[in-house]
Design a protein around this nucleic acid. Structure first.
Lengths: 194, 194
DNA sequence: TCCTTATTTGACAGCACAGTCCAAAAACAG
DNA sequence: CTGTTTTTGGACTGTGCTGTCAAATAAGGA
């Protein structure tokens, strides 16, 4: 029987996510990655293929985890609109302690645009998931009378998604939690029925 | 007397902006830059110092030009709120023909975060300029009764800035003009007095 | 104990990159 | 035409990068 692996693949990937999240794809060197993952060169190439595949896997994992978090937060709230507000405000809150890393997916979109098909596909699927969730909540909010009755759910969902992206990039650019709080508040207030 | 320069420094910088805008700082190689600028290696090093200084100069120039455009657009409109709407909608319109490059400043913010002090300073000054312009227009809109009277001008200005950033990144991520149009419309409608 | 098989380790190849050096060309004053 | 001064182009340097290779190592099964 062969020698057994000495490292935990999942844990190593988790640490690779951190590095890519901080530094992006290009700026993250393999040596930096290996140091953070705590494994040797060849082990990484054996387990993940190459830097690019490691990145794709890291991006998929990041998206899966963060969207799971978000969906949990969306379903836990007492009302649809406050659930959406909660998600936006959470980003504003996180931006301080989370070392201003923004969101790995937002960074990926900025770094690659649509130049990389696989990256674009991963990001698109994540965006779609968010979009449907937002649209459903907006519809609920309308039914409950929380949101303006004339609101187009699809358009509002697109707006919310864009707002989150903007929030995260403003956070990366150094905006303070108060600034981000303002942004989130105005965005939600604009949807509210008055 | 010395030999006279064979190239137009301004034109060369203009072309460097295009390359950095498309590809960012890291991904733009000097050879790519030189080819686009139409000059030799040594000429670039003589005229601009090095790649980093060229980038900083390109970023400053980009910001000066695009904000001049925006201010013109903001002052030309018939009403404050429609001026703001015009700016947002212009981004939505541009995103098609402009080869999905988003905005060089947004890309720079994503690429560098706050890791580069000089880049951050350039971006901050641009953001400040936008912010004051937006705040003034929101105040005007309130006075004219176009905007909600309870609106906080500073917060609304922050919101508008974040919305623009979001729009541009969504454009880079591949959002269609219709999607961007929706985002812009909902954002402005949220500020409007009803 | 020895053999098979997979992982680890360290060294190394190949490449692309930013930046430098130097000789040749070009412009103009005298 | 000559001398001075700057630009120019091409070759070159050194460095850092990703990815590979081969030998050493570990873990069981025969």
């Amino acid at each position: 029987m062969p020698r057994t692996k000495e490292f935990d693949r999942d844990e190593a990937l988790r640490r690779a996510v951190e590095v890519f999240w901080d530094r992006g794809y290009e700026a993250a060197s393999t040596e930096e990655l290996l140091a953070a993952m705590g494994i040797g060169r060849q082990s990484m190439y054996n387990a993940f293929g190459d830097k690019r595949r490691l990145y794709l896997e890291a991006l998929r994992r990041y998206q899966a985890e963060t969207s799971a978090d978000m969906f949990e937060r969306l379903s836990a709230a007492e009302s649809p609109l406050s659930a959406l507000a909660g998600v936006l405000l959470e980003v504003a809150r996180q931006s301080d302690d989370e070392r201003r890393r923004s969101c790995m997916a937002v960074n990926a979109a900025a770094e690659f645009g649509r130049s990389d098909q696989e990256v674009a596909a991963i990001l698109d699927s994540g965006s779609d998931l968010c979009h449907t969730a937002y649209a459903r909540l907006v519809a609920q909010a309308k039914r409950k009378g929380e949101a303006r009755p004339d609101l187009d759910e699809q358009a509002a969902a697109r707006f919310l998604h864009s707002t989150l992206v903007g929030l995260r990039l403003r956070a990366r650019a150094g905006a303070s939690p108060e600034v981000l709080h303002d942004i989130a508040t105005i965005a939600i207030d604009g949807l509210r029925a008055r």
